[in-house]
C-alpha cells in the first residue's frame, strides 16, 4: 500500500509541475506581446531601432505618446473611435432593451411573428456587396452614423435581455399598471432599474465591439475624417512608406535633433497599438465578471 501511495505522490508531483508550467507558459505567451509593445514605446527610439530593447526598457521617455497626437488624422480618429463607442453603445442599449421589453409582453401585437422576424436575422445575411449597396443607398457611406444606427438593434443581445426581463416577477409591473402607469413609464421606472446587471453586460460587450470594429470602416469609408483608430492602425501597419513620408515632414518642420525621441515608423506602429489596446487592458480586469456573466447567460438558450 505504501509503495503505491508513494508512486502516486511522485506522479502527482510531476503532474503538478508540468501542469503549472504549461499554464504559466501559455499565460506568458498571452501577456508578453503587450509588455514588449509597451516597453518599446517608452524606450529611447534610437535604441529601439537598433534592436536593443528585449525585456527591459532603456532610456525611458513618454514623448512618443505626445508626438503621435501631432500626426495628421490621429486625433480625429481617436474622436471617431470614442464617439462611436459611446453613441453606438447607447444606441444598442436603447434599442435592444426597449424592443426586448416590448417583445417580452404576451399582449404584444402578433408577438410570435415579430419575435421570429427579429431572431431570424441572426441566421442569414445578404452578403457584402448587397449590404454595401444598401448602405450606400441609405446614404450611410462616409457617414459617422453608419457606426451607430445599424448597431441599435442587436438580435443576440435582445434575446438575452428579453429572457432576463421575462424572469422579473410580473407583480411588480402589475401594481404600477393599476396606478395607471403606461408602458413607457413602467419600462423606465421599473424594468430598467431591475435589469441593470444585464444592461451592464450588454453595454460592455457592445462597447468592446464598437471599439474593435474595423471592417465597417474598410467597407464604407473613404473620407479620412471618418476613420477609426483601428483602421488607422491597419493603414500604418501596411503603408510603411507613406508613414515614413509623413514622419519625415514632421521632423523637417521640427527643430529638435534628439535622436532618442524622434518618431520612427516602428515607434508609431507600436505606440498607436498601445493607444488602441490600453482602454481594453484597463477596463478588462474590472469588468471581467460582466464578460463572464455574458457568456454564462449566452449559453442559456433564449
Amino acid at each position: 500500500m505504501k509503495a503505491i501511495g508513494k508512486k502516486r505522490t511522485a506522479q502527482d508531483l510531476v503532474f503538478n509541475i508540468v501542469n503549472y508550467t504549461v499554464y504559466g507558459l501559455f499565460t506568458i505567451v498571452c501577456v508578453l506581446p503587450f509588455y514588449y509593445l509597451f516597453i518599446n514605446t517608452i524606450s529611447a527610439n534610437d535604441l529601439v531601432s537598433r534592436g536593443q530593447i528585449l525585456l527591459v526598457p532603456k532610456g525611458i521617455h513618454f514623448n512618443n505618446y505626445a508626438e503621435i497626437l501631432k500626426m495628421r488624422g490621429l486625433g480625429q480618429a481617436a474622436l471617431v473611435s470614442v464617439g462611436r463607442t459611446v453613441l453606438g453603445t447607447a444606441g444598442t442599449l436603447l434599442g435592444t432593451s426597449f424592443l426586448g421589453y416590448a417583445l417580452s409582453k404576451q399582449e404584444y401585437w402578433h408577438r410570435k411573428i415579430w419575435y421570429r422576424y427579429v431572431v431570424i436575422t441572426m441566421y442569414f445575411n445578404a452578403g457584402i456587396i448587397p449590404w454595401f449597396i444598401n448602405m450606400k443607398n441609405l446614404g450611410l457611406t462616409n457617414s459617422f452614423w453608419a457606426y451607430v444606427i445599424p448597431a441599435i438593434v442587436s438580435p443576440f443581445s435582445l434575446i438575452l435581455y428579453k429572457t432576463y426581463v421575462e424572469n422579473i416577477p410580473s407583480s411588480l409591473e402589475e401594481s404600477a399598471a393599476m396606478d395607471g402607469a403606461g408602458y413607457l413609464i413602467r419600462f423606465t421606472r421599473i424594468i430598467i432599474p431591475l435589469s441593470k446587471p444585464i444592461l451592464a453586460t450588454t453595454a460592455i460587450f457592445a462597447a468592446v465591439g464598437q471599439w474593435n470594429s474595423f471592417t465597417d470602416t474598410l467597407f464604407l469609408m473613404t473620407d479620412s475624417t471618418k476613420f477609426t483608430l483601428q483602421y488607422l492602425l491597419y493603414e500604418y501597419m501596411n503603408e510603411a512608406n507613406s508613414l515614413a513620408d509623413s514622419l519625415m515632414k514632421m521632423s523637417e518642420s521640427g527643430v529638435r535633433v534628439d535622436m532618442s525621441s524622434i518618431l520612427t515608423a516602428t515607434s508609431v506602429k507600436m505606440t498607436v497599438s498601445m493607444v488602441v489596446v490600453l482602454p481594453i487592458l484597463c477596463v478588462y480586469p474590472f469588468f471581467q465578471r460582466f464578460f463572464v456573466n455574458g457568456i454564462m447567460i449566452g449559453s442559456v438558450k433564449g
Binding site: 509593445l37 468592446v208 471599439w211 474593435n212 470594429s213 474595423f214 483601428q230 483602421y231 492602425l233 491597419y234 501597419m237 506602429k269 507600436m270 497599438s273 488602441v276 489596446v277 481594453i280 478588462y284 464578460f291
Partner: peptide, 9 residues
C-alpha cells in the same frame, strides 16, 4: 478582446 488588426500588430 483585442481586434484582429491589433493581433496583426
Amino acid at each position: 478582446f483585442i481586434s484582429w488588426v491589433l493581433v496583426y500588430s
